[in-house]
Simulated assay, not measured.
Amino acid sequence: MSEPVLSVRGLERVYETGAGPLPVLKGVDLDVYPGEIVGLVGPSGSGKSSLLHAAGLLEHPNAGRIVIEGRDCSTLTDKQRTKVRLGAIGFVYQFHHLLAEFTALDNVALPQMIAGRSRAAAQARAKDLLSELGLAERLTHQPPQLSGGEQQRVAVARALANAPRLLLADEPTGNLDPSTSTSVFDNIYDLARRQGIAALVATHNLELARHMDRVLTLKDGHLEPHTFS
């Protein structure tokens, strides 16, 4: 078997509250492999977002190791963490967080230009990604001119713009109706599979989760295989 894109060992996350320390992650271990789509389920407040934020180098855990493509990121500087996020990790959130004043094309081109790609090359890749997601006729539309499903597809294209090896998605279809949710998830699944991307997807939608390669439940600070009833 190939090496995991994401490897987490002994991850702990504790939040300080007025009532004292609140441990959310209590020694989480996790591997996600190239082309694998792993579902993450659990009740609200169980720590799914905390796990994604730590794995995506957005937050510092209290303990544990995070290895991305064989590189231990646990001791990196903030500048080094930012570089890894920009080049190796794509993020999709429940809300699209698109820049309202930019077109769909420019929303997808922008992270590539930040990474050093020329505007022409960035726009060419953005056009290809958006066309692959069925948005060839919407390239010049701004987010307010797009439907919810279209906005989220633009967000998926943006997440994949810099060809990341790891995709982290936090309730990516949470704001969409069931039919649109299925369509957007299929887009994520197909692109991740074909491009060999390791994907970790937090969701409350167990029907979508059934289609993933593995599903894990985060409960009492630990991961365990999810059993569908």
Rank of each mutant, 00 (worst) to 15 (best):
residue 99 L to A: 12
residue 60 H to Q: 11
residue 4 P to Y: 01
residue 147 S to H: 13
residue 186 D to Q: 15
residue 109 A to S: 05
residue 101 E to F: 11
residue 226 H to T: 05
residue 215 V to F: 06
residue 217 T to C: 12
residue 151 Q to I: 08
residue 15 Y to I: 01
residue 94 Q to L: 11
residue 94 Q to Y: 04
residue 220 D to G: 00
residue 139 L to K: 10
residue 192 A to W: 01
residue 157 A to N: 09
residue 66 I to V: 14
residue 86 L to P: 01
residue 117 R to M: 07
residue 212 M to Y: 10
residue 57 L to V: 04
residue 205 N to S: 15
residue 93 Y to V: 11
residue 14 V to T: 13
residue 31 D to A: 13
residue 134 G to Q: 10
residue 44 S to R: 12
residue 89 I to Y: 03
residue 13 R to C: 13
residue 204 H to T: 05
residue 90 G to C: 07
residue 56 G to Q: 05
residue 3 E to L: 12
residue 61 P to S: 07
residue 218 L to E: 02
residue 87 G to V: 00
residue 74 S to V: 05
residue 162 N to I: 03
residue 20 G to W: 09
residue 7 S to I: 00
residue 206 L to D: 09
residue 137 E to Y: 04
residue 123 Q to Y: 06
residue 178 P to T: 03
residue 72 D to K: 09
residue 162 N to G: 07
residue 173 T to F: 08
residue 219 K to D: 13
residue 197 I to L: 06
residue 190 D to P: 00
residue 30 L to N: 06
residue 33 Y to M: 07
residue 122 A to Q: 03
residue 85 R to G: 00
residue 190 D to Y: 05
residue 63 A to M: 06
residue 77 T to H: 01
residue 185 F to D: 00
residue 124 A to H: 14
residue 194 R to T: 07
residue 74 S to K: 03
residue 139 L to N: 09
residue 65 R to A: 11
residue 88 A to C: 05
residue 181 S to N: 07
residue 18 G to V: 06
residue 219 K to Y: 12
residue 148 G to V: 07
residue 186 D to K: 15
residue 30 L to P: 01
residue 21 P to S: 14
residue 113 M to T: 13
residue 188 I to R: 01
residue 130 L to G: 00
residue 228 F to D: 09
residue 39 G to A: 13
residue 154 V to W: 03
residue 59 E to C: 13
residue 219 K to H: 14
residue 26 K to W: 06
residue 193 R to S: 03
residue 3 E to V: 04
residue 172 P to I: 00
residue 81 R to M: 09
residue 48 K to M: 08
residue 219 K to M: 13
residue 98 L to N: 02
residue 22 L to S: 10
residue 98 L to E: 01
residue 151 Q to K: 15
residue 138 R to K: 15
residue 93 Y to W: 13
residue 18 G to P: 09
residue 219 K to Q: 14
residue 43 P to T: 05
residue 69 E to A: 14
residue 69 E to G: 08
residue 106 D to N: 09
residue 12 E to M: 12
residue 52 L to R: 02
residue 149 G to C: 07
residue 66 I to W: 01
residue 31 D to L: 11
residue 198 A to S: 09
residue 111 P to A: 14
residue 82 T to W: 02
residue 64 G to V: 01
residue 143 P to D: 11
residue 85 R to D: 00
residue 134 G to K: 10
residue 56 G to M: 15
residue 206 L to R: 14
residue 146 L to M: 15
residue 141 H to R: 15
residue 170 D to G: 06
residue 151 Q to A: 12
residue 181 S to I: 01
residue 101 E to C: 04
residue 146 L to C: 13
residue 216 L to M: 15
residue 144 P to A: 13
residue 146 L to R: 12
residue 164 P to L: 07
residue 137 E to G: 08
residue 19 A to W: 02
residue 120 A to W: 09
residue 132 E to G: 15
